[in-house]
Design a protein around this nucleic acid. Structure first.
Length: 428
RNA sequence: GCGAGCGUAGCCAAGUGGUUAAGGCAGUGGUUUGUGGUACCACCAUCCGUGGGUUCGAGUCCCAUCGUUCGCCCCA
């Protein structure tokens, strides 16, 4: 086959799927509006250095998963692998801290990572996310998490787990890291090879290894929660308290660490058992050092991102696809009738009816067959006789009832038609 | 980047070395030349992802390649 195909790890979202996407977008938009979060749209590619500094050069995403290239001006460019770095860059570049108060932002868009495609994982994928900049208050964490759960709930998703942890401040982590290395070093030989590797490079990441041998060793490992400073501890306690007050049930998971370097204190993931290996549908955390790291004023922040492909998979499991219903299907034959048919279609469409016009010019029988399959409630029929007399046949497909109407009278019938259509639609 | 499975029409799918590649859905035409949902009939892959090889002979075996699926790594 020599025809051109979509690039590996990319896919078309076809009409029978796009409704799920529109549903997610509409619900998210509405909920963000009520929480007074503002949308921000940043470029899809940025300087490579932004992501290297933001996420950390040693992270897997930066070291092996970025779509990086040199443009014609010899600039090092990377297609964004996540949303936070770009939003923070924009925040700094436009001096948004000068606007005072807290910036609550949300975004939606394509992200790119060069990974092996898998269920719920594409090379081009889509994330919906929020960033709250300028508040170190634990209530900002709670608000952001609550927003995520509100969206997921509004989508009708159930059976989701919220995993919550605190990884403390930098000092806390230093101490814990030492303790963890101290504990693991005697077991080094029994760890899986990836984890042995991480022992020196990034020991915290060993905690979420899926290797069962490694997990067994980790059972008695020290917990980050025992290494939190009093301040960090109090912060985490109050967050849990507040989430409880909001009715948000969390599972405290002291093994939860996140892949990107910028997180501090709060980290969380929302997971589902219905996604196969890629269980995380939403993840995020606090990043109090990131803005400064990227050259901005010292500004605390918290954010999360949801994977839209994964949300769509979950939605497809709980609700059937429903194609947009057709109200009127217009059947016509003969030159004069066919042009009149389009005029009538316009009248109906301007009144808000979903109106499909058969353009085939084939036999009436065939056109009716298609009309029937379209799920239309009624047909408007125009042939030579009707076009001569400036009339049309109005046929209700369910009952088969048919009557003659004057074309000129259609506008005055609109309200009547509207009630009929909605009644028949609700009857099913 | 690593491991395993799969790749037959728009979709689902039979076929496991031997003449013309089942079937179903969808589509098109007809029975019904101006009226649908049922039924019946006809048409709809010179070809089995691509390239090479083995063989008298391959969709069927082998190799490579591309794609895809599942898992690992990692992540949303």
């Amino acid at each position: 086959m020599s025809s051109i195909q979509a690039i590996r790890g990319t896919r078309d979202i076809l009409p029978d799927e796009v409704g799920y996407w529109q549903q997610i977008e509409a619900i998210a938009r509405k909920i963000f509006a009520t929480a007074v979060y503002q949308e921000i749209r940043t470029p899809i590619f940025e300087q490579t250095a932004l992501f290297e500094r933001g996420m950390g050069e040693a992270t897997d995403v930066v070291s092996k998963e970025m779509y990086t290239f040199t443009d014609r001006g010899d600039r090092a460019i990377t297609l964004r692998p996540e949303g936070t770095a770009g939003v923070v860059r924009s925040f700094v570049e436009h001096g948004m801290q000068a606007q005072g108060g807290v910036q609550r932002l949300w975004y939606l868009g394509s992200m790119f990572r060069y990974e092996r495609p898998q269920a719920g994982r594409q090379r081009q994928f889509h994330q919906l996310g929020v960033e709250v900049l300028g508040s170190a208050d634990f209530r900002a964490d709670a608000e952001a998490i609550a927003l995520a759960t509100t969206i997921l709930q509004a989508l009708g998703l159930k059976n989701l787990r919220i995993e919550l942890n605190s990884i403390g401040n930098g000092d806390d982590r230093q101490k814990y890291r030492a303790a963890l290395v101290n504990y693991l070093t005697p077991h080094q030989a029994d760890l899986d090879s990836d984890s042995q590797d991480r022992l020196t490079r990034n020991p915290l990441r060993i905690l979420d290894s899926k290797n069962s041998g490694t997990q067994k060793i980790l059972k008695d490992a020290p917990s980050i929660l025992d290494y939190l400073s009093p301040d960090s501890q109090q912060r985490f306690d109050r967050l849990q308290q507040l989430l409880g007050d909001l009715g948000i049930v969390c599972n405290i998971n002291d093994r939860l660490v996140r892949g990107l370097d910028y997180y501090t204190h709060t980290v969380f993931e929302i997971q589902s058992d219905d996604l196969g290996s890629q269980a995380t549908v939403c993840a995020g955390g606090r990043y109090d050092g990131l803005v400064a790291e990227l050259g901005g004023p010292d500004t605390p922040g918290i954010g999360w991102a949801m994977g839209l492909e994964r949300l769509v998979i979950l939605l497809q499991q709980i609700q059937p696809a429903h194609p947009d219903p057709v109200d009127f299907y217009i059947v016509s034959k003969g030159e004069k009738a066919e042009t009149q048919a389009l005029v009538l279609a316009q009248i109906l469409r301007r009144s808000g009816f979903r109106t499909e016009l058969d353009l085939s010019g084939s036999a009436f029988g065939k056109q009716f067959k298609r009309g029937d399959r379209s799920g239309a409630i009624a047909c408007l029929v125009l042939g030579d006789a009707e076009s001569e007399s400036q009339t049309a046949q109005l046929k209700w497909l369910k009952s088969g009832e048919q009557s003659t109407i004057e074309q000129a009278n259609l506008p005055s019938m609109i309200e009547d038609l509207r009630t009929q259509i909605s009644r028949l639609r609700n009857d099913g």
